[in-house]
């Protein structure tokens, strides 16, 4: 009896120890290095979810790459939605701070992106809730950089950072 109690206690102790190591390490890894997420909606067609509602892609989100809030024009990034903080959105970066962009359906025809902000748009124009409706977004809302499609397996690929030529900024910030 005493022996079995000792065994139980030892087991519980080992379990607690493993628990307190594994959970913080896993949470930190998912917060700081990388995580995976399922993409919902048609706003990034044809880059993501080309099949419409039948298929939804799973992407790898790299947090480590954007730890200093450095993004390039054309990158696909995920952000906290400025309209609903519980939701994350995935969009393509069109312009960085200081650029002047020609908008599509925004209240102003041309917008200069303010300091610390970026202009993001979905690839599927007209079916995307993006900067054309809520304006430039603060870099502080940046969540991660989507680098690969992981699932479905036949769509496994690296996500290229391409800027549609017709969406080049009208005037770039001089480097």
């Amino acid at each position: 009896m005493a022996q079995s109690q000792g065994w139980v206690r030892r087991y519980a102790k080992a379990f607690c120890k493993g628990f307190f190591v594994a959970v913080p390490v896993a949470v930190t890894f998912l917060d700081r290095v990388a995580c995976v997420a399922r993409v919902e909606g048609a706003s990034m067609q044809p880059s993501l979810n080309p099949g419409g509602s039948q298929s939804s892609d799973v992407v790898l989100l790299n947090h480590w790459k954007v730890r200093n809030f450095e993004v390039q024009r054309g990158d696909i990034v995920s952000l906290v939605s400025p309209k609903n903080p519980e939701q994350k959105i995935i969009k393509r970066v069109i312009a960085l701070e200081g650029d002047i962009v020609k908008t599509m359906g925004h209240k102003n025809r041309y917008v200069k992106v303010p300091r610390g902000h970026i202009w993001v748009e979905g690839d599927h124009h007209g079916h995307s809730f993006d900067s054309n409706s809520f304006g430039p977004v603060s870099l502080g809302l940046l969540h991660a950089h989507a680098t690969h499609i992981l699932w479905p397996p036949e769509r496994w690929q690296k996500l290229e950072s391409v800027l549609p030529p017709e969406r080049l900024p009208v005037q770039r910030e001089e480097d």
């Binding site: 200093n68 809030f69 903080p85 519980e86 300091r115 610390g116 603060s138 870099l139 502080g140």
Partner: peptide
């Protein structure tokens, strides 16, 4: 838990400089 209320003092990232 989205429990921020009017009158609370909060720390936020600056909108013009995320660092």
């Amino acid at each position: 838990f989205y429990g921020i209320q009017r009158g609370d003092i909060v720390i936020a990232k600056s909108p013009s400089d995320p660092k």
